[in-house]
Design a protein around this nucleic acid. Structure first.
Lengths: 251, 251
DNA sequence: CGGCACGTTGAAGTGACTCAATTCGCGTGG
DNA sequence: CCACGCGAATTGAGTCACTTCAACGTGCCG
């Protein structure tokens, strides 16, 4: 270990960094965050971290790799709801909604931290403005859900896929996970279909269309943006809902 | 006025009643809620209460009538995101997300109360567990969004419409807004289409199918459920996500 | 009475789906 | 080392659910 910090401290620093993207933390908040004691775990591709119907007593914090939320229908269908990257808290809502209405799974090998609900509750009590920051985090989640409803409901196949690519690129870019115009996207075409409500075949052809149009290319678990303006334009993508670079005043 | 209470007090009682559906309020919480000073307004059908892009400094609380949230695409398309009934806070998230990513409009004539953000912020500080209750309310919203994504993405037209009917009936029933098997649903078929991502014509035929199947009937701004079990079954409706009758322990 | 919003119906068009076959890369085990 | 199985991507072809277009009925309101 070259680092002088413990892995735990790194995790807490990442959490603080994420929250400070959209909220202002007081020194007391940061101190209270430092009291948290996450448990670290590694994840393997395709493994469920939390299952629909569970009553978790911890919340997941993504450190490395990509994680997805999905719902399962009684008939067996699967709908992916959202993708999550380092710094995200994909099931923070389980703090206050006891029973999971969806599952959380790892899309690839990665690392997560688990925060016990009891600790988070104490944090919220002791450091109210840190609590607000967490609340805001769940509100950004909800904004992404709204966007997904509109995307899946109003746009044709190619535009819909393009929008997913724009969102993924913007979010990974914000946390410096991109190498040039490339960012991770460890989803099969079939999973992309279950995310957008399209069939595998349609996804395949939509990706070809985007590639032939010189806009973007998806291969080997990565997205390469060939023409950002063009892609954004095609998708009708407006990143406002992601709240990047917006800091909630005081609170 | 036969009532010995002021309209304001009625509003605050309704808010407390709603929050107590899913959360436990302490006497201090209730007292703090009583300090709020909402402004009352009436709404007319089709009028926007808040617009996409706005930076509201109040949050809407629905008292009477139905309210909807919707997003507008640059190209002019409209996607309804959710329906809201008495006791709902359709733009509570504007407390912490400054810029509205969607609009809120009245679907019919009704009444609303407006809570200044400053008052709500003070409430959250003074009565943390009331704050949690409000947080939980926004989380239930998010759960409905997730359900909408899955509903619109995985189900065929008839089932999709059936699911909307089930959700509406369950929610209105819970707050005693139903008369027998009838509940309000002041949406045109065209709006129902913009809610489900279907065309007007498809909605019309789906409704006919449900009526001919003896499951449900929609007419004159109201839904009549003819066969609740059958409708639920057809829709694949599982009301768990609405959190009806679930009380968050402690907080 | 005329205009308009909404609902209904028929018919034609099409985007996306299903079905199905082929290819490729990769890991495994004979 | 190669046969094999498997997951994933690709491609063609036929079908279908839903869309679009268009016409018409109805009730309400000025």
């Amino acid at each position: 270990m070259a680092s002088a910090t413990t892995p735990q401290q790194d995790v807490l620093a990442l959490l603080a960094k994420r929250l400070k993207k959209h909220s202002i933390l007081t020194p007391e908040d940061e101190a209270a965050l430092g009291e948290l004691d996450p448990r670290l775990e590694t994840t393997a591709r395709g493994v469920d971290l939390v299952r629909q119907g569970d009553r978790p007593d911890v919340s997941v914090f993504v450190l490395k790799g990509m994680v997805a939320r999905y719902q399962t229908l009684a008939e067996g269908g699967r709908q992916y709801l959202s993708l999550h990257i380092a710094g995200d808290l994909p099931d923070l809502q389980s703090l206050f909604l006891q029973i999971m209405d969806h599952s959380v799974m790892a899309l690839d090998a990665g690392e997560i931290a688990l925060f016990p609900h009891t600790d988070l509750r104490r944090l919220i009590l002791c450091a109210p403005s840190a609590g607000i920051a967490l609340w805001r985090q769940t509100l950004i989640d909800a904004a992404m859900f709204r966007q997904a409803i509109t995307n899946n409901g109003q746009r044709a196949a190619v535009e819909r896929i393009a929008h997913v690519l724009c969102e993924t690129f913007t979010r990974t870019h914000e946390i410096d996970l991109c190498k040039g115009q490339r960012c991770p996207l460890p989803l099969s075409q079939s999973q992309l279909g279950q995310l957008t409500g399209l069939s595998l075949v349609t996804v395949n052809r939509a990706l070809q269309t985007l590639k032939r149009a010189g806009l973007a290319e998806v291969a080997d678990g990565a997205l390469t943006v060939l023409d950002w303006d063009g892609l954004q334009d095609r998708a009708g993508f407006d990143p406002g809902y992601l709240q990047v670079g917006r800091r909630g005043e005081a609170w």
